[in-house]
Simulated scan of single mutants.
Amino acid sequence: MGLLSSIELPHWLMIAGIILAIVGVFGLVITGNKHAKSDAPGLLPEISPPSQLDSSPHKDNE
Rank of each mutant, 00 (worst) to 15 (best):
M1G: 13
D60Y: 03
S5D: 09
I7A: 00
P50C: 03
E62R: 14
G24S: 13
I30G: 07
I22K: 07
D60L: 12
G24D: 01
P45L: 05
P49L: 12
D39V: 15
F26I: 12
P41N: 03
P49K: 14
I47W: 02
L3G: 09
L3Q: 09
S5G: 15
I22T: 11
S55G: 11
V23L: 11
W12T: 00
G42Y: 05
S55Q: 15
L43T: 12
H35P: 00
G24R: 02
A36L: 11
N33C: 08
S55P: 06
G42N: 12
I22R: 06
V25Y: 06
I7H: 02
L13E: 10
H58C: 05
M1Y: 06
D39N: 10
A40Q: 12
I47C: 06
E62K: 13
V25E: 03
I22W: 04
G17R: 09
G32L: 00
S55N: 13
M14R: 15
S55M: 12
G24P: 00
L53I: 13
H58D: 10
V29R: 07
L4K: 01
M14N: 08
P41A: 01
P41Y: 06
L53W: 03
L53Q: 10
T31V: 07
W12Q: 04
I22H: 03
F26T: 07
